[in-house]
């Protein structure tokens, strides 16, 4: 293992973590402020990816496709909030889990009807299709580098929004004490809708960033949803900072688990056992991380509220 490979894997972990952050940020706010377990968050990600892919093909421009796709997904999310999810805020977690589970199934079927079973593909825009030489011997795909930069920019923007602005203050108040936030403004409904729309937009951005890397297909939301939930729970529900740290942790732990665990085990254990245990440990590394965090801090790394 050379240090170049190590650096490259660090970048991979960072990139994966930042994508998780985009999904987890919306999820954690919806969780924290509206007290809603939204399993259908992954469906918004899927919707975003499909819309971006379709609009990119229709307009012929990736930038335009991404912009329109994000806007459309945000509108879709807000419509969903107003028409459906609003009624779920006061229900218990069990009903929320079941209702949004049903939404996943509906979203998948609808997508299948509209776009068919074949995955869509979206190619990387030409300007970003190559690789960049970062250091002698270390080349990295330009598009993945773009993802890292976009992820960091969004994280910084969210930080400023939440910490420095009035809306951010409302959001934080909402996450730490819902009753108080409700008492503070008559426009709380509007705030909920806006937060939900912003979460949907972040989903779409993640979908847009990943669409050129992954097949855009039905069911793409579920596998990543669980990871996003793990991230949110590790970070502490309602905490943007927690979602960021949690996402980077999950990204890096998962990447390192896959990249180095089999080799390390082979060095320490008999090969037959190492070959069986390596992939298993790599697969469960993030769940171990989560259980470990919750064992020591039952409300996540950055618990919000009292």
């Amino acid at each position: 293992m050379t240090w170049i490979l190590f650096l490259e894997q660090c970048l991979n972990g960072l990139q994966f973590g930042l994508m998780l952050f985009l999904l987890a940020a919306g999820l954690t706010l919806v969780f924290g402020i509206m007290d809603l377990i939204n399993l259908a968050h992954g469906s918004l990600y899927m919707a975003g990816a499909y819309l971006v892919a379709t609009l990119t093909q229709a307009t012929g421009s990736f930038m335009l496709g991404v912009t329109l796709g994000i806007a459309a997904t945000a509108l879709l999310g807000m419509a969903l909030e107003v028409l459906l999810l609003r009624g779920l805020y006061k229900r218990d977690h069990l009903s929320q889990v079941l209702a949004t589970f049903a939404l996943i199934l509906i979203a998948n079927e609808t997508t299948r009807v509209i776009w068919g079973v074949q995955p869509l593909t979206l190619n990387v825009p030409d300007t970003l299709s190559g690789s960049v030489q970062l250091l002698p011997g270390l080349t990295y795909p330009a598009f993945r580098l773009t993802i890292i930069l976009v992820g960091l920019a969004v994280a910084a923007a969210l930080y400023i929004l939440v910490v420095k602005t009035r809306i951010g203050m409302l959001i934080r108040a909402g996450a730490s004490n819902r009753q108080m936030a409700m008492a503070m403004g008559t426009d709380i409904k509007w705030l909920f809708t806006a937060v939900f729309g912003a979460g949907a937009a972040l989903c779409a951005l993640a979908g847009a960033m990943l669409a050129p890397l992954l097949a855009v297909e039905v069911g793409m939301g579920e596998s990543i949803l669980i990871l996003a939930f793990v991230t949110v729970v590790i970070g502490g529900i309602g905490s943007i900072r927690g979602a960021f740290i949690g996402a980077i942790l999950v990204g890096v732990v998962d990447t390192f688990g896959r990249a180095f665990m089999p080799t390390l085990l082979r060095a320490a254990l008999p090969p037959s056992f190492a070959d069986a245990a390596g992939p298993a440990l790599a697969s469960i590394s993030i769940y171990l991380l989560m259980v470990g965090v919750l064992f020591w801090k039952p409300r996540g790394l950055f618990p919000v509220g009292s």
Binding site: I37, H93, V230, V233, A280, I284, Y287, M290, L294, G300
Partner: peptide, 27 residues
Amino acid sequence: VSLRTRGVYFIMITLAFAQMVLYIFVS
């Protein structure tokens, strides 16, 4: 481990354990 947590955290931690058991048998 799980019962130290409440609410959503409990839902998620039981899910995490189930995933671990799943991947152990897969391997």
